[in-house]
Write a protein that binds this DNA or RNA. Sequence first.
DNA 1: TACCAGTGGACAAGGGCATC
DNA 2: GATGCCCTTGTCCACTGGTA
Length: 304
Amino acid sequence: MYCLEFAIPPLPQFLMAGHAVWKPGDQHFARVFGVYDLLLVTRGTLYMTEEEMEYEIGAGKMLVLEAGLPHFGHRSCSEDTEIYWVHFVHGHPAAHIRQEDIPWSTLLSKGTNEDVEPSSQQRMYLPKFAAVDVQSLEPLLRELDDIHNGLNVETALRLHLLLAELFAALQAECVRTFEPEPSLRLARAAVAYLNEHWRQSFQLAELEASLHFQANYITRCMKRHIGKTPLQYVLHLRLEEAKKLLGGTVLGISEIAEKVGIRDPNYMIRLFTSKLGMTPGAYRLMLRQRKGEEASGAQEQNDG
DNA sequence: TACCAGTGGACAAGGGCATC
DNA sequence: GATGCCCTTGTCCACTGGTA
């Protein structure tokens, strides 16, 4: 399946939404539209051609017609055909990408101090033409249509929120319908194993024995699909836990290191310095100063 | 004295490339 | 897709110094 890749932010912007029942003999006219047109059919069949590619959009299917591409109905409806449509615009043309090539790991945070900057690689994905769970999407589409028909100041912003929800649902559909390739299944199995065992001392050999694949290969699969090697993933979990303990307890560095599975407190200091740019002590001090500022700010508000 | 931070050496893990 | 080889990189251990 092909998907459309949109660079975000900003999210595509809502223009119009509608609902219609086409009668037998109705046929879409030809046009070149300057906006994206998301079509979702709940019953009947709609026949659309975009750039010489014919689509038969049956019940439970969706198609995104792209901005700037000519499209027309190549055949009239043969039965009552119920459709929802949503028009939206986006600043940059969408890229085409095969579903199995979508680098999902780039959507995730790195878990380092780099996350204070917004990622330049944020993307949103929509199926180009796919079968979707219409029943779960219909209430959302109906609300979009209702609000758009009775638009007022109070509901105007909600239209954009609903469009974002629709995009999230379609992207989730994209992930759900994807039959994972063997390397992805292996990467997920490794993550599941590490989520259970990250507090224990890390031995790649144990992971190897558990999953019955060469450690080298498991590492590559995880790197490809998760964005982290097994060790990097374990360290990420450990650092996140250590950060929580530094902020939420008075435990010493050694105790915290032990609790998160790092035998050597000095090593944890090195990890902190390399990943967060500061030592655990400095990190704890920063958290305390931040809490102090928040507390004094709240006090000033109460006084004022 | 306890805790934190810095450094060097040994070894395990990562990753590029080739192969089946 | 899966594996092996081999060099590079990162992690761990041991030790030392600075500071409260």
